[in-house]
Each structure stands twice: as structure tokens, then as C-alpha cells.
């Protein structure tokens, strides 16, 4: 073997051995950790499968039903494919469009009111704006409660209190939104630059003036972006809130699924998907514009 540039210099065996051993030990330790992690996960999965009454044989036996179900979604009552007769398929389009409009309106009013509450609450639970730890903790706990209880549970209770219709749905979404947005808003406020606030305080501004002129201009773009995201989530949520009788298209969907009106199910699902995607694209466009406006400033 001649000494060319391509030869890799190899350490003498005496020096190499401890290094190789150390490497081997490190790899083995990592592998042990990995195996242990996998074992724990598998054990937990088995336990969960037991708890969730998983029956693989029943699943395999009925998996045909699943594909069958989608096949039936694609057929009209007459047995023809749905796309052969769109008029028959979307026979209730006018009603469904009205209901999806109602759904979007529920989502909008819920998001708007929830965001308003979150906007007022977030300044009260940030450490850099509110001195009183009692007030801060109270508002934080309240928001936590609002976002941990699922919106549908609120809706179920509100339906009893307010009666059937969109009102309980709007309120359930609003409360859940207030909790979720309140937390996100508070995080934004926690990370602001405090110099403008101090400047206004130094020139004699009140607490409200500090928030209005020191904080709000810094956080408004972020807040809007979060509120838009939440609106998107709420449209999805409003589409099922009708399951408990709280307005929107959900009630019609529930009835069609329960009564096996397959063509209606697929038509309503398509209306929902189209609407959600439209809102997705719209809010994404708005959020990108917001980001660009922020960048230009």
C-alpha cells in the first residue's frame, strides 16, 4: 500500500479500541432506550385496545361495509351513480345552501363575540400589564375552563337553557373561542416590546392609554391572524354543532346519516367540504397579506 492522499489514516489499535468501545456503548445505550420506549408504547397500546373494545376480526369482517358505505354514498336511490343526475343528487341544494350559510354565520358570530371577550381578557392576564396576581390567576383559570370543556358539551347544556336553534350554538362556540383565543392572545401580549408602554406611562398616560397606544398597535396583526385561524376551526365546529340541535347544517346531516339517505349524505358532505375549503383558502390569503403588511411596516 503506497502512501497516497486517498489513504485514510487509521489510529493504532491500542488507541482505537477504547474509542470504538465508547461508540459501541453509546449506540447500545441509545438502542436500549429505543427498545424500552417501543415496549412501553406497545404495552400502552395493548391496554388501550382492550379498553376501546377493539375487535380485529369484527373489523376485518366489517371492513367491507366501510368501502361498501362509500360505494353507496355514490349511488342515488334509483341505483344510478350520483354524478349521472346532479339535479336529483343535489335536490335540496337551496335548503342546504341556506343551512351552510347559517352554519358560517354561527361560526362568524361565535368567533367575533369570543374574540371580543378574549381581547378584553388577555390584557388582564398578562404579567407585564396587570399587577394584581389574584386578577391574573382568576382570568387565566376562567379562560382555561372555557377552552377545556368541549364546545359540544356547552352546546348540550345551552340547548336545555335557551331552547333549540342557533343561539346555543353561537354561545357555545363563543365561550370556547374566548378560552382558546384568550390564551393565544395573552401569549402574544406577554412577548411585546414594553418600551412604548413605558413611554406612554412616563408621559402620564392612563392604563387604558397604555394598552390602546402602546400594546394594541403591536399585537393587532397577530390577533387578527389567530382570530382568522379560529374562524376556520369554528366553521368546522359549527358544521357538527347541529348534532345536538344547536343550528346549522349538522342536524340535516345527522338525520340523513341515521336514516341512510346515502345520496343526501354525500351531497351535504360535499357542500360542507367545499365551504370549509373556501374558508381555508380565504383566511390563508388574508393571513398572508397580514404577514406581508407587517413585513412592509
Amino acid at each position: 500500500m503506497t502512501h497516497s492522499i486517498h489513504t485514510v489514516a487509521v489510529l493504532p489499535a491500542a488507541q482505537l479500541a477504547p474509542l470504538a468501545n465508547a461508540y459501541g456503548a453509546a449506540v447500545a445505550a441509545k438502542r436500549r432506550q429505543m427498545v424500552l420506549g417501543i415496549a412501553v408504547t406497545l404495552f400502552a397500546l395493548a391496554l388501550a385496545a382492550l379498553g376501546a373494545e377493539v375487535e380485529p376480526q369484527k373489523f376485518w369482517a366489517k371492513l367491507g361495509n366501510f368501502t361498501d358505505y362509500f360505494a353507496r354514498l355514490a349511488h342515488l336511490d334509483s341505483g344510478a351513480y350520483v354524478w349521472t343526475d346532479p339535479v336529483e343528487w343535489f335536490w335540496g341544494l337551496r335548503k342546504w345552501l341556506r343551512l351552510i350559510g347559517e352554519t358560517m354565520l354561527i361560526a362568524y358570530i361565535g368567533t367575533f363575540s369570543g374574540a371580543l371577550v378574549a381581547f378584553c381578557a388577555c390584557f388582564m392576564c398578562s404579567a407585564n400589564l396587570t399587577r394584581s396576581p389574584v386578577l391574573r390567576a382568576t382570568v387565566r383559570r376562567l379562560l382555561e375552563f372555557c377552552r377545556t370543556v368541549p364546545d359540544l358539551v356547552f352546546a348540550l347544556i345551552f340547548v336545555v337553557a335557551f331552547g333549540l336553534g342557533p343561539l346555543p350554538g353561537v354561545m357555545a362556540l363563543a365561550i370556547h373561542t374566548a378560552g382558546a383565543l384568550g390564551k393565544l392572545f395573552a401569549e402574544v401580549v406577554d412577548n411585546i416590546d414594553l418600551k412604548p408602554v413605558e413611554g406612554i406611562a412616563a408621559s402620564g398616560g392612563s392604563w387604558f392609554a397604555q394598552v390602546r397606544f402602546g400594546v394594541v398597535p403591536q399585537v393587532l396583526a397577530n390577533f387578527t391572524s389567530y382570530a382568522l385561524l379560529r374562524f376556520e376551526i369554528n366553521v368546522r365546529g359549527a358544521s357538527v354543532i347541529g348534532f345536538v340541535g344547536a343550528g346549522g347544517i349538522g342536524e340535516d346531516l345527522l338525520v340523513s346519516i341515521r336514516r341512510f339517505y346515502y345520496a343526501d349524505v354525500s351531497a351535504i358532505l360535499l357542500v360542507i367540504i367545499a365551504c370549509v375549503m373556501l374558508i381555508d383558502v380565504g383566511t390563508e390569503f388574508l393571513r398572508h397579506r397580514l404577514v406581508r403588511m407587517e413585513g412592509a411596516r
Binding site: G51, E53, V54, K62, F66, R258
Partner: peptide
């Protein structure tokens, strides 16, 4: 709702 139609009511 769809899966209930396929595998029946229950946690699965």
C-alpha cells in the same frame, strides 16, 4: 357517525 354504521355503536 360513519364508523358507527360500519362497526356498530361503541368505543371502537
Amino acid at each position: 357517525l360513519i364508523w358507527i354504521n360500519v362497526v356498530g355503536l361503541g368505543p371502537f
